[in-house]
Amino acid sequence: MKEEQKWPDLKINGVGNATGGRYGAVLIDGVCKVTGDLRANTFKANGKLKVNGHLQADDMRIDGIIDINGGIGGEHLQVNGLFKASGNCELERLEAVGGFSIGGLLNAGTIDIWMQAQGKVKEIGGESIQVRRQATFRNSKLWRWMMPKLVPELHTDTIEGDDIDLENTVAGVVRGNRVTIGPGCTIGRVEYRTELHVHKTAKIGKEEKLG
């Protein structure tokens, strides 16, 4: 199914406002606010962006700070920076570097996360889920006490997937086939089918092998 209709492009440099709607390519550099649902084929944002509505695009790249009052849908999302969404995120592939907060379910085929600041997600579901932390000084005890928001740690209620590989994650329940719990994790309960690897510094409340 290929879209035959040609949609207009949205380009903003500097400070601006835009309304939502259907666009071909969206390119935003600077500070911008979008009101309404935004749909585009490709979406690129640099700087600070606020969207009041649902964001839907096949290919998305975000550098900087983005705040979405709604959900995200699309094929591929690449984030570098801070990113916040209040709804569900449904993607085929997510590559995120930085920090983020998602109010609903993060549902993606492949999830690759490099934590540099705090991450908060209600639930995560997908096929392959990998969470890595960048080794930084912000992991130290002093920083944890001074600036808890900058501690690279992922907080979530549940993680469900086929291949799960975690670091620095605080989760209630983790369920999967092959599960690797790396350093800095605190997990309430792990349910796995085939394999479970646990790093010696990880804390796990309860382990259960299924099937």
Partner: peptide
């Protein structure tokens, strides 16, 4: 429950989430 469903049908979490997507 989701757990019983996956056991009964033999599908994985990944498949279930993909179908939901």
């Amino acid at each position: 429950s989701k757990k019983d469903l996956l056991e009964l049908t033999g599908i994985s979490y990944g498949q279930l989430y993909r179908w939901k997507r």
